[in-house]
Simulated scan of single mutants.
Amino acid sequence: MVQDEKKKNAGIWAKLLGLFLFLIISLNAAIWITGCTYVYKALVYTYPDTDDIDIFDVRSISAKNPRPWPLSHSYNKYALPASTLAKLEELDSEAFLVIREDSLIYEQYWDQLKENTVSNSFSVAKSIVGLLVGIAQEEKLFSIEDPVSRYLPSFSEGRNAELRIQDLLTMSSGLNWDESYSSLFSKTTEAYYGSNLRKLVKELKVIEIPGTRFSYMSCNTLILGMIIEKASGQNLSAYAAEKLWTPLGAEYPAFWSLDKTEGVEKSYCCYYSTARDFARIGKLIQDSGVWYGKRIVSSEFIKASLSPHGIPDESGNKTDYYGYHWWMLDHKGHKIAYARGILGQYIVAVPERKLIFVRLGNKRGEKVLPNHYDDMINYLDGVLDTF
């Protein structure tokens, strides 16, 4: 009897093992048949991180004429409020710095990071691309009123032909993109871990009338990057180096993740730089597109970037918090412009106070206002109260 029971149990386990192996083989076959091989990389690395520069190919954005920030005579003589410092430490910060009146007045680093350590900015890159669009338009490489099809032929047919560059800038493209960060099979996950961004873009379809609904989607910035590439005849990193990074006097090279070796920039994310150099973007916004007397971006484009476009959002409310790839907020009598990334990366400018701050790190807070996060508000209050 005991012998029979053992044989019976062994048979059950053998069947379960066989079923398990069948499922594994079937799943792998499905992944290969559908071309979703990026899933393997996503499973290995689980979730995007600030040091993902080590797992992707990158292209360098050169810094040829470095201009270090002058140090304020009060450099690091101020202390942040205890609540701000607690929030920074709670959310696993890497860097926090403040520029006042064009001088570096405060900076702090964690976990052995230094002023020359680069970190992933995630969607802060979207705001950088927004500025590059403004530069390209000023150079008459294109107009934001142009149809996307003029530069990317895959948008020439059907509703795709209705899409304009401006619709991409305002996040109102109406494309069939899934902006999910937790699904293995979302287009956002495929864009991050996959190796063929051009194919991914060619498969996109306009499913809503462009320009009629604000819906934040990474594909919009991805397409903008490809348009700049096509119109300029340069890869996006080379264009950024020549038109933005070098003119801004960046101290260190930046890096942009690619989908593969010598591939396409992940323009919607994955621009790696230092906190000090990210602050230069804040100064450019603060000074309406001028860097120490030199015009980099037209004042008209900066004004449009920082003006609510008013397109109804997914709740049906007019968008009063987003312009041309930049976020905005009225706070305590101040007009705030900022770029943000998914793990609480921020470049924040308070132009009327000549204040800029940058935060880099690994976590962000909770959404407390309809479209803003409590950590950014905490940092903002701390900076406004201290400096």
Rank of each mutant, 00 (worst) to 15 (best):
W110E: 06
T188M: 10
E179D: 07
D102V: 02
G158C: 09
S173Y: 00
S154V: 02
E115N: 15
M171N: 12
E107N: 14
S180A: 10
S195F: 07
L184E: 00
L197Y: 03
G174K: 06
G158P: 03
Q137A: 13
E101L: 09
E101Q: 15
L104E: 01
D178F: 07
R150N: 12
S103D: 02
A191W: 03
L163G: 11
F122D: 08
K114R: 13
T117M: 06
L168T: 05
P147H: 14
T188C: 02
L113K: 15
K140H: 14
E115Y: 13
E145L: 05
Y109T: 01
N116E: 14
I105T: 14
D167N: 15
G134H: 10
L168A: 12
W110F: 13
V148P: 01
R198Q: 06
S182P: 00
Q108A: 05
V148M: 09
L197P: 01
E203Y: 07
K114A: 12
N196R: 12
W177L: 04
V133Q: 09
F142S: 13
L132Y: 09
S180I: 00
S180T: 02
Y192F: 13
K126V: 03
V148C: 11
T189H: 04
N160L: 08
P153F: 07
E138L: 05
K140G: 04
G130P: 04
G194Q: 01
S127F: 04
L168F: 08
Y192Q: 06
Q112F: 04
G158A: 08
N120M: 09
R164S: 10
